[in-house]
Amino acid sequence: MKCEQAKLKILRADAGELGSWQTRVLERHLGACAACRHYRADLRQLAEATRMEPQPAVDAFAMRMLLGEAQRVSAQRGVPSLGTRLFDFFQTLEIPALRPALATAAVVAVLVGGALLVRQPSMLTAWNDDVDQQIERLQDSLAALSADDLPHANANDLENIACELLEVEG
């Protein structure tokens, strides 16, 4: 590996964007190249010094102004959309490994639900009122599937969760 390439890889490694194989290649180069080791050390020193620069606390008055604006906007905004609530629900999940499966299940559920609503728009009002409770029930189901069980979670578990979501739609 040439030093110019190694320097780019040092930057990406420092940002956590380098795969394990490329990291090993880079480490091998660094083991043999003092100039690149020096480059990395300089980069780290610069980062440390930059991050130690003093910064102000948020002024209490400015914070009150922001919170006042937030209150006003929040009052106008009303209840967040279903998409936003589902997004927040997935983002705050404690079992990250399940997120992709759940996200897929949610997309399927929303598509099925959307198709149903096109046929019967009157369903929307009643269903929307109930959706928070349904999401809470889904959270309980997920809590039952603890992190310890995760390695043993199989297609049936995921199917059950998908069914729960579909039930929310229905």
Binding site: L66, L67, A70, Q91
Partner: peptide, 13 residues
């Protein structure tokens, strides 16, 4: 963020 979207303004702080 989730709390703030649900209307808990203090979470913004």
């Amino acid at each position: 963020i989730a709390e703030y979207r649900k209307g808990k303004v203090e979470s913004l702080a």
